[in-house]
């Protein structure tokens, strides 16, 4: 694996559309559930252990070479909110576009061909990691980190939260993120040997409900 390639894929400026999304933070801010750095950290921990763990396991499984069509179905089954499914596919499509230009690879071409409107983002991420010569642990780390750095960045814009405080939140989450990445790799390996039903199916109902409400707001800063 190339550590430098991992930095390219994990960079928040990697042009794959993530900047327009808050990872549910905008809905949580509006509902009064995120008001400061402490509640941002709680929100991020919640994400990390629910939808974050599922996404990272999918990404690790895709990076291990599990069939993307099966993983995409598994992702649908683990995403009750239609709004979140749409967002995940849109971000997956944008990621595949950026990855094809960055690391041309037949598996990315095949994914774009099979899913012209986008596969779920973690499936695209795992395939992009393969194309970049990265492994399941790298894919899991990228998925988990983006799952918490997206909300942290968004809350800086939404609340005017001190950017140093937001970054300190991410640093405090690092040990939990390390453990979650290891769990995700193990889940990915189980999916490789036993099939995608071995993937975790944890959910965060408030994220799902918040996403459905947010998608109907007439005025919002973020697309999700």
């Amino acid at each position: 694996m190339s550590r430098a390639a991992l930095l390219v894929l994990a960079d928040g400026r990697f042009p794959a559309g993530g900047h327009a999304h808050s990872g549910g933070a905008e809905a949580a801010v509006k509902a009064g559930r995120i008001t400061d750095a402490v509640s941002l950290e709680q929100f991020c921990r919640g994400r990390l252990h629910t939808s974050g763990a599922v996404a990272a396991s999918l990404a690790a499984a895709a990076a291990l070479g599990v069939d993307p069509r099966e993983l995409d179905r598994a992702a649908d089954a683990r995403t009750p909110s239609p709004a979140l499914r749409l967002v995940a596919r849109r971000l997956g499509r944008q990621l595949v576009r950026a990855a094809r230009a960055t690391w041309p690879h037949p598996e990315l071409d095949e994914l774009a061909h099979q899913f012209p409107k986008g596969a779920h983002q973690p499936v695209a991420l795992g395939t992009a990691a393969r194309a970049a010569g990265l492994g399941p642990q790298d894919a899991a780390y990228c998925s988990l980190y983006e799952g918490v750095s997206g909300p942290a960045t968004a809350v800086v814009r939404l609340l005017g939260l001190d950017p140093f405080d937001a970054t300190a939140v991410l640093a405090r989450l690092a040990p939990a993120l390390d453990r979650a990445a290891q769990d995700a790799v193990e889940a990915g390996q189980r999916a490789l040997s036993d099939g995608p039903e071995a993937l975790p199916a944890r959910s965060a109902p408030l994220l799902e409900i918040g996403a459905e409400a947010h998608a109907k707001w007439p005025v919002r800063l973020f697309a999700s």
Partner: peptide, 9 residues
């Protein structure tokens, strides 16, 4: 400019 993916789509 920096991340044109949504517009290209």
């Amino acid at each position: 400019r920096d991340d044109i993916s949504a517009n290209l789509e």
